[in-house]
Write a protein that binds this DNA or RNA. Structure first.
Lengths: 338, 338
DNA sequence: TTTAACGATGTAAGCGTTTACAATGCAAGC
DNA sequence: GCTTGCATTGTAAACGCTTACATCGTTAAA
């Protein structure tokens, strides 16, 4: 296995200096066409591929962006990452991906790893991160952006929406339909500010109407279809039934809808169900799911653009609020008469 | 913004040489506990974080693995990547992710980028990749592994299953149920060896029974629910109806099942439908989907293990075949009487 | 024609690690 | 007490690239 060719090899073959070869790669405009042609053909002949590590070391620029998501198993994050990655690739950046499995401690660890890999920027999800993380990013002055969240008053750059406000809108919509017996199947709120904000939004909106989200009608479950099913089943088979169930995301809501069908509970006749995310599926199941459309593609793009701008010294709004639309479909209807 | 601390700073503060600091980081066993303690506290005091680029340059090891997937929008790939990433992280490797959007040319470009970023290994999907890609990997002797495919005779390391054979099993299963009028909604076969192998498997198995997969009963569509719906709709509304529809993956199959319900077509009474992948959803929709369970988690783990072994010089089987189970559920039944 | 200014190129000094090799100290063996 | 051998540490040379600076023609301005 012989050594890979280096700039020096290319330079020798092309009859120029290594500096010129480097310039051909990084600023082709600054080198005369004649020389450039010689270099290009030397590169082709040798099959030269620049060494990223050396390049990163010398230029203090890695060309990579890191992202830490809770999980890729929820396709809403996968879609967001897909969009982020495509936008980054278009700007010649590569994505380094890690997952936290919904643990802030693991997140901190993954972020440290990414930072030591030398990422130029970081995409995070949510607002709550361990203090040492923010400290590290500040000290190394690594640009970062929180996504899936929007906090106009917070100190951190963000691209997203106000989870509390959107959840509140869902609750208000149900209240307007006459629902009073409202239950919620939330995601696990520990280490998850989006989940707790959504709960808070529902609670706040209900209490504005003098209503209370009872403790036994607030169920926390991991985001999975099966958990949505069992939670819904539990809600429907113990004591008085709620007339509406707000789910922390679409996955839980899908579970609820499936379980309702299995139990013979009429949706929305007996009970209304709402989701959060608007997965592709939401519009196809029957009854189709009323939910909030999270602008994942847009979020990925905006996060990429923010970081790319920051890295190249350009300016970009520190906070971007994205619109979340309430998509009313068939799983919600007027509250049944008492 | 002051310079980040380097090994030299740590060494000075700890009163040792840079070599010792380096050893503390990479082979703690070889340095005396006393010295190690001093180094550790110096690291903590300075908040030192090693520079990945410099480390990669000096050690010829990046600690990163690249992966190129067609898309993350299909959650089956997202799950695979999730599993791969978790396994890699456990072995202190970071994942560099790119997507090809089902284009081999774009794949080649992304692979070149990853290679120049200095990945230690590469996870690819499928067997068909541009010749220059294989050539490049060979020349730079970068370990790689093809996933989602199993080719015992091919020259490439792989972890997966035989798409043709599994598709054939699905077809045979339907034939055994008495189906003769079989149609297929395939994914786009251009640049996608898994999709074309699946078609080939169905065709082969049918022709073994003297049957033909008619041209107008083989529809190619991008993998999306909507495309599954429209394709199914088309199949059911032009000319004689098939009694069974084999779908290239679960996403298409979900579309078909949803459309059947919308059209009032009875599944499996009027028509049987099969998928491929076994998404979480497949078992929850109604009727639940008969499909082939692709062992994504296992595939991610095995791919990670293969590369990690290769990189650390250990040996690992070049080809791993994973079992794919045919999961019979409610969307398939005996062919209706003629 | 002279001079200044500029564009293209080369020289060489890093960038922050790792690691081969040398040096040192120490315990054990004789 | 002298050797040996081992464990630990230090010295300094890569690793492959970018880029500040110097150099050298050339051209435009005066």
């Amino acid at each position: 296995m012989k050594r890979s060719p280096t700039v020096a090899d290319v330079a020798r073959l092309a009859g120029v200096s290594t500096a010129t070869v480097s310039r051909c790669l990084n600023a082709p405009g600054t080198v005369r066409p004649g020389a450039r042609a010689k270099v290009d053909s030397a590169i082709a002949e040798l099959g030269y591929v620049p060494d990223g590590a050396a390049r990163a070391l010398a230029s203090r620029r890695a060309g990579t962006i890191g992202a830490v998501v809770p999980t890729l198993e929820n396709s809403i994050f996968a879609k967001g990452i897909h969009s982020l990655q495509n936008r980054l690739a278009a700007a010649a950046n590569t994505l380094l991906l890690a997952s936290s499995n919904y643990s802030l401690d693991q997140e901190e660890h993954e972020i440290r790893t990414l930072v030591s890999r030398g990422v130029d920027g970081l995409v995070l999800i949510g607002t709550s991160h361990r203090a040492p993380v923010y400290e590290l990013l500040r000290r190394k002055s690594i640009p970062y952006v929180n996504t899936w969240t929007f906090d106009p008053r917070g100190p951190h750059p963000c691209v997203g929406f106000d989870n509390r406000q959107v959840a509140g809108r869902i609750a208000r919509y149900l209240l307007d339909l006459g629902h009073r017996r409202i239950a919620m199947i939330s995601g696990v709120t520990l280490d998850n500010d989006r989940a707790s904000e959504r709960v808070a939004g529902v609670e706040r909106t209900m209490s504005d109407q003098g209503l209370l989200l009872q403790a036994d009608w607030l169920i926390e479950r991991p985001y999975s279809i099966v958990d949505g099913r069992t939670a819904f089943h539990h809600l429907m088979s113990s004591g008085p039934r709620p007339s509406a169930v707000i789910c922390g995301n679409d996955v839980l809501a899908l579970g609820a809808v499936f379980e309702a069908e299995a139990m013979g509970v009429d949706v929305p006749g007996d009970v209304s169900i709402t989701g959060f995310d608007d997965l592709e599926l939401a519009s196809h199941i029957s009854p189709s799911l009323t939910t909030a459309r999270v602008p994942v593609e847009h979020m990925g793009i905006a996060a990429a653009d923010y970081l790319i701008s920051r890295i190249s010294g350009r300016t970009f709004p520190e906070r971007t609020e994205l619109e979340v639309q309430l998509v009313v479909r068939e799983t919600t209807g007027r509250a049944p008469d008492e």
